[in-house]
Amino acid sequence: MVPVEHYFVLATVMFFLGICGALFRRNLIMVLMSIELMLNAVNLVFIAAGRGNSSLDGQIMVVFVITVAACEAAVGLAMVIALFRKYGTVNTDFLRILRG
């Protein structure tokens, strides 16, 4: 059996890559995809920890995380489409109304 810590390291790497993508990509859709990557890292930690502690709650948490991820993707992409209709771009550099 693989020690739980190994899974944690993998999840940490994934989460960090997700943060990098969310911070440095200029495309809104890429930002959303990076967030999905981060959510998946969290899922991996839940399942590995649940298994390491012989508990089922980790798997149940993952069900909820996937639900929230689906909602987030649906609403996020709807916003991307609305933004594209209004401004003709999804590049975050050009979407700066709130920046004053």
């Binding site: 859709i29 959303l32 995809m33 999905e36 998946n40 899922n43 399942i47 590995a48 298994r51 798997q59 993952v62 069900v63 996937i66 991820a69 689906a70 993707a73 649906a74 992409l77």
Partner: peptide, 22 residues
């Protein structure tokens, strides 16, 4: 890790629906 249900849900919801939407 013996979580077959979650594995199936992962492919079904994430790969089958969310990324298709993207």
């Amino acid at each position: 890790m013996d979580s077959h249900f979650i594995a199936a849900i992962q492919i079904l919801v994430y790969a089958g629906a969310i990324v298709v939407l993207f």
